[in-house]
């Protein structure tokens, strides 16, 4: 089973995001970067498929600046075989469509039975790349996936996905693009021998020109702002539970007017 895993390096969820004074973006100094959590599920699932079929490979594909190499190495340390790093100044602030074009163009140059993407990256929160890669490659998409069962002949798969208020089970011909959702698996940690081996695994570097894509933007951001600071409101302490409960229920009706 050959899997191609699209992966993004994002600020750790612990990060306190700060907007630059001129509002052109976020201040990046001191940020610790990690693999997007939903992409970790993708890496894990791809590794499990390779283990299950006792054949194939797991290839990591990432768009990002120099630092993204660390995220690719981490995935290689988990057990992936090789990486493709699309590193191009023109793509560093790119929108989902441009990123999807780059991912799809790189995918078209390699062999795969299945492509995994996280269902969204937890930095810009667009959640579009997976479906767009699928469309650009003319492949089916199965989004928000929590279970993957590949058929013996590797020509189709049965998957479970989250839908509003429940689950949908679908049958999909391969290759296809899967977007991973929490619940798919529990990602493994990189082992020490894994980390040592990862240092020697190949990472292929690509530019936008290598992929033959233009990076003409479709979206543009401006005026980054911090959320309105919320003030702590009323506190009910050292009170009988019944009195505190009554006071808050009354306040929700009469003051906040939400019930």
């Amino acid at each position: 089973m050959k899997s191609l895993v699209c992966l993004k390096q994002v600020p750790d969820t612990e990060t306190q995001i700060k907007v630059k004074p001129d509002g052109t973006g976020i201040a990046t100094d001191g940020i610790k970067y990690v693999i997007n959590p939903y992409d970790e599920f993708s890496v894990e699932e791809a590794l499990r498929l390779k283990e299950k079929f006792k054949a194939g490979e797991v290839q990591i594909l990432s768009v990002g600046p120099d630092r993204a190499t660390e995220a690719i190495r981490t995935a290689l340390a988990m057990g992936a075989d090789k990486g493709i790093h699309i590193n191009d100044e023109a793509l560093n602030q790119a929108d989902p469509f441009v990123i999807a074009k780059a991912l799809a163009a790189a995918a078209a140059q390699v062999e795969y039975d299945i492509i995994f993407c996280g269902h969204r990256a937890i930095d810009d929160d667009f959640g579009e790349a997976g479906a767009m890669v699928a469309e650009l490659l003319g492949l089916p998409q199965v989004t928000l996936v929590t279970k993957v069962e590949i058929s013996e002949d590797k020509k189709s798969a049965v998957m479970e996905r989250d839908i509003e208020g429940g689950k949908e089970t679908v049958e999909v011909p391969l290759p296809c693009v899967v977007t991973s959702q929490k619940g798919l698996n529990e990602p493994r940690y990189a082992s020490l021998p894994g980390i040592m081996k990862a240092k020697k695994k190949p990472i292929d570097k690509k530019s936008a020109a290598d992929l033959g894509i233009n990076a003409e933007p479709k979206l543009q951001a401006r005026n980054f702002t911090m959320p309105a600071e919320r003030q702590a409101g009323k506190r009910y302490q050292d009170m009988e539970p019944a009195d505190a409960a009554k006071a808050v229920v009354q306040a929700l009706r009469n003051e906040a007017k939400v019930i």
Binding site: T15, Q16, I17, V19, I26, D125, L219, Q220, R222, M226
Partner: peptide, 12 residues
Amino acid sequence: PMYAGKCYAQWV
């Protein structure tokens, strides 16, 4: 919202 609401931006 971006970063799950840690900041906001206007997009065109």
